[in-house]
Amino acid sequence: MKKKKLLSTLLSLLLLVGCINTCQYITPNATVEYAQASSFSQRNAVSKAKSYLIVSAFSKSGLVKQLKYEGFSTKDAKYAVNHCGANWRTQAVRKAKEYLNTSAFSKSGLIKQLKYEGFSTKDAKYAVSRCGANWKKQAVKKAKEYLTYSSFSKKGLIQQLKFEGFSSAEANYAVKKVKL
């Protein structure tokens, strides 16, 4: 027991001075178990995963792919995503908001995009319901995007917006707002 306590204290000190990266701030005993149960490459993969999650949102599979691209083995990448402390639903909401900050999406279009990114259908639907989007405003934004690059008749723009997944009400609202 004294050996475990000494190791726990030593790891705690190393954590304080930044010598060891852990996947989450946890009790010293749990830190000992984490440090003993993982290899150096796994701890590095966890550290890299956490740094990616600070910058951008990822799905579990998307983060595995990114870590593999960085040169981590599949085993280490999978270990990292399972030990980095990420809440994948929270990541889905963050990713949805990231997309909405750069482009316009319909509700169904955003779900499809999140699924493409590797989020489960359940997490994608959860994210879309909690991302705070106003789907009528998204339809207006998408209509403006289309009109920037192409010409449309009123009927054609409504059809295009509906094709993108907007409802008839959202598409008609957008067309009125862009004064087409």
Rank of each mutant, 00 (worst) to 15 (best):
S59Y: 08
K60F: 01
K60H: 12
S61D: 15
G62N: 07
L63T: 00
V64P: 03
K65H: 09
K65M: 14
Q66R: 15
Q66E: 15
Q66P: 00
K68M: 15
K68T: 15
K68E: 15
K68F: 00
K68W: 02
Y69E: 15
Y69K: 13
Y69W: 09
G71P: 08
G71D: 07
G71M: 09
G71E: 08
F72Q: 11
F72E: 05
S73W: 09
S73P: 03
S73T: 15
T74H: 11
K75C: 02
K75T: 08
K75S: 10
A77L: 11
A77T: 05
K78C: 07
Y79E: 05
Y79P: 02
Y79F: 14
Y79W: 15
Y79H: 15
V81Q: 06
N82D: 14
H83S: 14
H83N: 15
C84N: 04
C84F: 06
C84E: 04
C84A: 12
G85L: 12
A86Q: 07
N87V: 11
W88Q: 02
W88R: 02
R89H: 04
T90G: 12
Q91F: 10
A92R: 00
V93I: 15
R94T: 01
R94P: 00
A96D: 05
A96F: 07
A96S: 14
A96W: 06
A96I: 04
A96P: 09
E98C: 01
E98R: 06
E98F: 06
Y99S: 06
Y99R: 00
Y99D: 02
L100E: 02
T102A: 12
T102S: 10
S103H: 10
A104Q: 13
S106Y: 13
K107I: 09
K107C: 12
S108T: 13
S108L: 14
S108Y: 06
G109Y: 14
G109E: 13
G109M: 12
G109K: 11
L110N: 12
I111C: 03
I111F: 03
I111T: 15
K112T: 11
Q113A: 14
L114G: 11
K115S: 08
Y116H: 13
Y116C: 09
E117V: 04
E117S: 10
E117M: 04
E117N: 08
E117Y: 04
G118L: 07
G118F: 01
F119A: 05
S120H: 05
S120E: 05
T121W: 13
T121P: 04
T121F: 03
K122Y: 08
A124P: 02
K125W: 00
K125I: 08
Y126V: 01
Y126I: 03
Y126N: 07
A127S: 02
A127F: 09
A127D: 06
V128L: 02
S129H: 01
S129W: 00
S129D: 10
S129Y: 01
R130D: 07
R130F: 04
R130M: 05
C131R: 03
C131M: 05
C131H: 04
G132C: 09
A133L: 08
A133N: 01
N134I: 07
N134R: 12
N134C: 08
W135A: 05
K137G: 03
K137M: 11
Q138Y: 04
Q138S: 07
Q138C: 04
A139G: 00
A139F: 02
V140D: 05
K141C: 02
K141Y: 04
K141W: 06
K142T: 12
K142V: 10
A143V: 03
K144F: 12
K144S: 02
E145D: 15
Y146H: 13
Y146M: 03
Y146Q: 09
